[in-house]
Design a protein around this nucleic acid. Sequence first.
DNA 1: CTGTTAGCGCCTTCAA
DNA 2: TTGAAGGCGCTAACAG
Lengths: 344, 344
Amino acid sequence: MLTIRKVTLQDVADHAAVSKSTVSQYLNGRYTYMGENTKKRIQHAIQELKYQPNAIARSLKQKKTTTIGVILANILHRFSTQTSRAIEDFCHKHSYHVILCNADDDPLKEQSYIEMLKAKQVDGFIIVPTAFNEEMYKHLLDERYPLVFLDRKMKALPVPTISLKNEKAALKAVSHLIENGHKTIAYVSSAVTISPRSERFTGFETGMKKAGLPINQSFVYTGNLDEAAAFYDHVFAGSRQPDAILTGNDRALMKTLSYLKNRFNNIPDTLSLLTFDDVEFAEFYSPSITTLEQPAYDMGTKAAEVLMSQIKGGENMENTETTDYCFEGILKIRESSQKRGGEK
Amino acid sequence: MLTIRKVTLQDVADHAAVSKSTVSQYLNGRYTYMGENTKKRIQHAIQELKYQPNAIARSLKQKKTTTIGVILANILHRFSTQTSRAIEDFCHKHSYHVILCNADDDPLKEQSYIEMLKAKQVDGFIIVPTAFNEEMYKHLLDERYPLVFLDRKMKALPVPTISLKNEKAALKAVSHLIENGHKTIAYVSSAVTISPRSERFTGFETGMKKAGLPINQSFVYTGNLDEAAAFYDHVFAGSRQPDAILTGNDRALMKTLSYLKNRFNNIPDTLSLLTFDDVEFAEFYSPSITTLEQPAYDMGTKAAEVLMSQIKGGENMENTETTDYCFEGILKIRESSQKRGGEK
DNA sequence: CTGTTAGCGCCTTCAA
DNA sequence: TTGAAGGCGCTAACAG
């Protein structure tokens, strides 16, 4: 079998009886002074030969790849799918490509991805930073790589960051619960290792304090969600039980619903629920679930936009201060945050 | 600001006082005849300079990029997230990269992605084919691009395809419903434009026929899901109503649940439900939902594996016949497929 | 207006 | 065991 030799610029040049550079000019729109019929000949040759430029060769020369690297936690999470989709859409519009990587919150995996992406000469990075890779990010910065953080802050580093006003959002959530007559609120979340989680928890605390309500520590769980069931066993064995649960993300919500389904065959009428993240079933669950949504798609778009302007800006962005973009959480009030038992 | 000049092979060679090619040998593990202390010097120089090879330059020379292109319908769909994650995992293990593209079932968008990916010299493609791009795929084949189809078949083309045994799966689903005493089964799906959808529908028909049950055409909807509500309005206005609904994918299920929530404030006790795709909330919905799962992660892995072996195989795969891989659907029986009203 | 030339950073014979 | 030379496909001055 003969390997298909790809047709190159040279082939087109030969076919059109001009030189390589002329064809190159043509390709790059440097029409200004080109003879009408030279153009036509080239145009024709390209079609004839089905010529397709080799972006690798172009990249080598131009030192840019029109490709960005995106490293996120886990595409199986809703926030990630939404933001990654947004980034992809934005990039496609601007003729950029995206290499997507799932680091699974594993610093080593993240490192290896960063290495690979650098080797591939990506023009910039959007990263959902893992907690323990500051050094790596610093290198990226030193090497002048355009870089944007998404979701999580690393305040030690001057990197533009797209995130939610987590504390404010949590406060909003708690206030809503309190206004609806809840006094004993449980809080469940993954381990508080990264900024969104700690900010949310702080917001929860602040909200309770403001209302003069005590936080019952035995109703607070922040840890591996696989052990959430044991926590709930404990909670629901007690004589005093919470009248509402606030979950810190979609994962925590699902663990909670699983538990309640197994234990009570649904959410008890006397228990309210409110969660971060807009799970798809919120609207049609019974009861429908009150959520504190992140505008994930918009956040992804903004991340891409900010990165792009860094890339385009290039040299002359030198001393632009890094701006952060904080989005407002959106409270979608539904049935689950009203105590239903009360009205019986 | 001075642009950071990247350190190159040449720099390393100078620093170690050897020639470029020696360093190159070292990098590519051609140790065999290399002097111990030459090695050490090079090793040292690399660390000193923090040298990182430029994959673009390497690719230009070697005519391969260790990157594959993946074009799927829409990452916001569950099947896509699962398969894409699987592909990514597999590729990462084999030191390959993935460029992910969402074609949204838009043939033009798909074309533009294929062009871009070709320009970027990807080593192969995994595609969830759109219905109307046969020509494009044929070109890919002519140009000897490794190619694998996922989810949907295009039987006119000799391309290895990873898919579900859709007809059999649908049959399994219908049989289960029938065994549980259902006789009037509604079927709801997106427009039947691609192979999985038509196969599933065929399976449904076969199942009904086998059991000697008539298909009531006014209980069948295959079209734009945004109009599913109108369909249901019609269905539930009638005097005879279905005792079960089979939905063709997660989207159709969600439209259905939304409708039922609005209309009946939940799934009526007299109505059973069974859906394709393993939605995350199946387990803890009330009632929990019987699903016909696709082993999406495994399918993604297989797709990557098959593509990889095409890529690795290269020349000598010449006349290997293209094999298809069909996966079994998995019926997960839960509460929603039992008529609950009956046992009251 | 178009062609010549000189690389981009790396790999790969082929000599030495 | 190591080095020199040529080239992958394209772009970008600079000549002509």
